[in-house]
Design a protein around this nucleic acid. Structure first.
Length: 504
DNA sequence: AGTGCAGTTGACTTT
DNA sequence: TAAAGTCAACTGCAC
């Protein structure tokens, strides 16, 4: 009881639901008794990018964290409400000496909420200590040297789990709301991964000890990716595992698979950095010439969203995503590409649908990817996926298609990927893929050739493209005519924006 | 054996 | 993490 007399160190858990490698927790504990708090914010869960499957995973992770912290002496305290109101109540009833948390690069809601929290903390003279998570750098001015700083951060020793937390017996732990308490729509996801650090640790061990061997060869096809990918993404998104511990756990291993995997961990932060540096990319196209070019069409959207476009491989991927809350990277790109090019739908709406379906939704990665797969960054090559070719390449025998589109199970192999061409009365897809791709390509290139496009693209490159030694940011993607060296420069710059695979 | 030719492969360019 | 087009080199085969 004595501890309650002292002002508390308030550790605010956000998307960092673990007690290992948790610097804010460790630092707070050095100063005094800690109140470990998670705030369930109904407004956050009512945002259009939130879903019941995400809450289900988060809730499991919270239960696991509560159990772990209980074992250390003080269970996780959970309160429901607006963050500032909850913090203010804690201040009035318990006294708060300092607020501790990890930096969060989230959506517009969490960005605005953090600014309110900052104002609240300042007005009451409460210092708010935010420790960086990931390799994302807040207040980044120059992109030069980013990769080195990432390496340094990942090489920092892990912060050990506290040995004990002084109990606060007078504080009720509080219950975790249900999906319906939060007003979330029913969202069955039968094959979803389970939340919680113990689950994350198991997946990590299994991946590094066994599955990583075949990583490189199995990440492209949805037939093999569910087992072949690391499947760590939701545990990183919700912070059950720290990125640093994953990097360090893989550091002692060698081989093609591990190298490939590590480059993706690097890339994870590279994308989150873009949203950190420019929060507007969640809502607005990078390039102004790309704004409002697409048309809303409710029927097309619904068909795409439910996996009934009539394009078998696309529908199979969407249905698998709905059931698992996850699909491999390449198929995410294809789904977005079909929505943005073939169906010509605005990326914000289709992006929100995918965000809700992803249990591992990470705003920085997600919105960068949505814009990239829609051609609106202006500094990346236009990549229009051919959904039939993707199917033939990655599911040649139609095993995946038949699994998720049982209505096609009896079709012979020959026309499985384009059943409408096999004669009979099979319905045509909602768009003719070849014609739709051609029209989209022509529209995009007409915009890219417009006067003034390149000048703005160069400015975007200057601000967002990562640098590589010896590269001057000159020339644009849409130039009508270009010297050979400019072409090389452009492709190098694309690569570095797209995937930061700098080995240095 | 050498030639012509259709078809294939791979590197590179364009959109 | 794209796809389609172009072109030159190559291959197998018929004659």
């Amino acid at each position: 009881m004595a501890v309650a007399d002292q002002p508390l160190q308030l550790v605010w858990f956000k998307r960092d639901l673990r007690s290992v490698d948790h610097r804010p927790l460790a630092l707070a504990l050095e100063r005094g008794p800690v109140l470990p708090l998670y705030i369930v914010e109904p407004q956050f869960w009512l945002q259009p990018d939130a879903s019941a499957r995400q809450w289900a995973f988060c809730r499991e992770a919270l239960e696991a964290l509560r159990e772990r912290l209980s074992a250390l002496g003080q269970p996780l305290v959970v309160r429901v409400g607006d963050a500032v109101e909850v913090l203010e109540r804690a201040r009035l009833r318990l006294g708060v000496e300092a607020l501790w948390s990890h930096q969060e690069t989230g959506n517009a809601f969490t960005f605005a909420r953090d600014r309110r929290v900052k104002a609240w903390a300042r007005s009451h003279g409460i210092p708010w200590h935010e420790c960086p998570q990931f390799g994302v750098i807040r207040g980044l001015r120059r992109r030069e040297g980013w990769a080195t700083r990432w390496q340094e951060r990942m090489a920092t020793p892990l912060t050990p789990e506290p040995l004990a937390l002084p109990p606060l017996p007078s504080i009720q732990p509080g219950g975790l709301p249900s999906t319906s308490d939060l007003g979330l729509a029913a969202d069955p996801c039968p094959c979803r991964q389970r939340g919680g650090r113990p689950q994350g640790e198991t997946v990590l061990q299994d991946f590094l000890q066994r599955r990583v061997q075949r990583y490189s060869g199995s990440i492209s096809s949805p037939l093999t990716a569910f087992d072949g990918c690391s499947r760590l993404s939701p545990y990183l998104t919700w912070g059950c595992l720290s990125l640093r511990e994953v990097v360090q756990a893989s550091a002692s291993l060698a081989g093609r698979g591990v190298r490939n995997f590590r480059s993706r961990l690097h890339w994870h932060c590279h994308f989150i950095q873009k949203l950190e540096s420019e929060p507007a990319i969640e809502h607005r196209d990078f390039h102004p010439f790309m704004r409002d070019i697409r048309a809303w069409d409710a029927e097309r959207y619904q068909a795409w969203a439910e996996g009934r476009t009539g394009l078998p491989f696309v529908d199979a991927c969407m249905r698998a995503l709905i059931a698992h809350g996850w699909i491999n990277f390449r198929m995410r790109a294809m789904l977005m590409s079909v929505a943005s090019y073939h169906l010509w739908l605005p990326w914000r709406e289709t992006g929100l649908h995918l965000a809700r379906l992803f249990v591992d939704y990470e705003p920085g990665i997600h919105w960068s990817q949505c814009q990239m797969q829609s051609g609106s960054t202006s500094i990346n090559t236009i990549r229009i996926y051919n959904p039939i070719k993707q199917g033939l390449d990655h599911d040649p025998k139609g095993v995946f298609i038949r699994r998720w589109c049982p209505e096609l199970a009896d079709r012979p192999d020959v026309w499985l990927h384009e059943p409408w061409r096999g004669g009979g009365d099979h319905p045509a897809p909602i768009v003719d893929p070849a014609q739709a791709a051609r029209e989209a390509r022509d529209r995009i290139w007409a915009i890219r050739r417009a006067a003034g496009f390149d000048r703005i693209a160069d400015a975007i490159q200057e601000r967002h493209g990562s640098r590589r030694a010896g590269l001057a940011p000159t020339g644009g993607q849409g130039s009508r005519r270009r010297r050979r060296t400019d072409v090389a420069d452009a492709s190098m710059r694309q690569l570095s924006l797209q995937v930061d695979i700098d080995p240095a």
